[in-house]
Amino acid sequence: MRVYVCVKHVPDTAANIKVVGGSGFDESVKFIVNPYDEYAIGEASQLVKKEGGEVVIVTLGKASAMTTVRAALAIGGDRGILIKTDKQFVESDETALILKKAIEDDGGADMIFAGKQAADSEGMQTCYRLAANLGMPVATEVVGFSYAGGKVVVEREIGGGEREVIEMTAPCVVGATKGLNEVRYPKLPDIMKAKKKPVNEIDAGSLKVDAAGLVELVALEQVPERSNAKMLEGSVTEAVDTLVKLLRDEAKVLE
């Protein structure tokens, strides 16, 4: 089977983000494979190991996203497709149309995995839009996956300690999150091998998709950290008594 994993090139989650020009940011920070996508790559690799076939990494990003395609191929994957654009934030509607076109041009999917969201723009909707474009069922926030005889069974956490067990027909789109599998950190030989795997580079413009532009980023603003914490001194009893009093009377968050 041919399994696609959609992977995004995002700033390291530990990086300091500095807003530049009202709706952009200083991109001279370290970029990584979107953390949720690592679970997607792991699950796709396990599926292909069992069922046979190939794992194809698909990334829409700037030319510099090649490092992320290689990093993804080191975690798992046989070849890559880098769809080049000049924007870091491509809205989900356009992203989903571009991914659909690239996947179809490449031969079409038997399964598609992705992370449940990008760690930068946190849109959480590309999986849904991609699935709708392809006429496939979709489930995200997936923490359990199995495949047998053309049927996919996933589990998704829905809060309060509950999990939904969902059955879908394949092909389908699965949005992965933490808990789906243990991320396998690539070893040096994996990284060396990944450098030699074929990566097809195409320009997003050449796919000629016509997106409606449903979401426009109007402004991006820095969120200041809190400062001047009140440190409560004295014995443990004194400190907690003061805390409870402050939470009731000053902060008014307790009754």
Binding site: P11, I17, A119, S121, E122, V218, L220, E221, Q222, V223
Partner: peptide, 11 residues
């Protein structure tokens, strides 16, 4: 955006 480091206004 960026996990609480920034806030985005979307139209």
């Amino acid at each position: 955006y960026f996990a609480g480091k920034t806030e985005a206004t979307l139209k």
